[in-house]
Amino acid sequence: MHAHRGFHTPPALPHDEVAEALERALRERSREAEAEAADALVGSALNDDDREFVEHWCVEVGTRAAPGSPLLGLAGLCLGHTARRFRRLGEEALVLVESLAARAEADPSDVDGRALDGWDDARSFLHLW
C-alpha cells in the first residue's frame, strides 16, 4: 500500500508565532520543531504580504540551519516563492538563494533539491537568465 502525499498550503501565521517556531527549530532540530517551522515558513512565503519579514526569516533559516537540515532547501524554495510573489528580492536573499542552489547541486545530502527550484523561480521571476 502506498501513502499518498497531498499538497498542503499552510496559512500565514502572526509574525511572533513564525519567529518562535523558526527559532525553536534552529535551536532544537527535532522533527516536530522542523515540521512546525516548515509550515510557518511556507505559510509566510505564500501568504504573508510583508516581503521584508519573509526574506528575513528565509535568510535566518538559510544561514543558521545545520548542514543536512531539510529547512535549508525549504528556505531556498521559499525565497523562490517570495521572488514570484513580489517580483524582487533583497541582495542578501538573492545571494543566499543562489548559494543554497549551488550547495544542493554539489551535495544533495547538504541541501535538498528544493533549493534548485527556488533558484529557478528567482531567476525566472526576477529576469536573471
Rank of each mutant, 00 (worst) to 15 (best):
M1S: 14
H2Q: 09
H2G: 04
H2I: 12
A3H: 15
R5I: 13
G6N: 07
F7V: 15
H8R: 14
H8E: 13
T9D: 09
T9P: 05
T9A: 06
P10I: 02
P10G: 02
P10M: 01
P11I: 00
A12I: 00
A12P: 02
L13P: 01
H15C: 06
H15D: 08
H15T: 06
D16Q: 07
V18K: 02
V18E: 00
V18Q: 00
E20W: 02
A21F: 00
E23M: 04
R24A: 14
R24I: 01
R24Y: 00
R27V: 12
E32R: 07
E32T: 13
A33G: 03
E34V: 12
E34K: 01
E34I: 12
A35S: 10
A35N: 04
L41N: 03
G43N: 10
G43K: 10
L46V: 10
L46I: 06
N47V: 00
N47G: 15
N47K: 15
N47H: 15
D48F: 08
D48G: 10
D49W: 03
D49E: 14
D49F: 09
D49I: 00
D50H: 12
D50M: 04
D50P: 02
R51S: 10
R51N: 10
R51P: 09
E52W: 06
F53V: 13
V54M: 04
E55S: 11
E55K: 11
H56G: 03
W57N: 09
C58G: 09
C58Y: 06
V59Y: 04
E60L: 10
E60I: 07
G62T: 08
A65C: 08
A65H: 05
A65Y: 03
A65K: 03
G68D: 06
G68L: 04
G68V: 00
G68A: 11
S69G: 07
P70N: 08
P70S: 01
P70A: 02
P70H: 06
P70V: 02
L71I: 01
G73I: 01
A75R: 03
A75E: 08
G76P: 09
L77D: 11
G80N: 08
H81R: 14
H81S: 10
A83G: 06
A83V: 10
R85C: 01
R85D: 04
F86R: 08
R87T: 04
R87P: 00
R87C: 03
G90Q: 10
G90P: 00
E91W: 03
E91A: 14
L94T: 10
V95C: 08
E98A: 15
S99T: 15
A101V: 05
A101I: 04
A102T: 15
R103G: 04
A104E: 07
E105Y: 10
A106T: 03
D107F: 04
P108Y: 01
D110V: 11
V111G: 05
V111P: 01
D112V: 10
G113F: 13
G113A: 15
R114D: 11
R114T: 15
A115S: 05
L116R: 11
D117A: 14
D117F: 07
W119H: 15
D120G: 12
D120K: 15
D121Q: 15
D121P: 00
A122I: 07
R123I: 05
R123H: 07
R123N: 09
S124V: 13
S124P: 00
F125M: 07
F125E: 10
H127D: 13
H127L: 12
L128G: 11
L128C: 06
W129N: 14
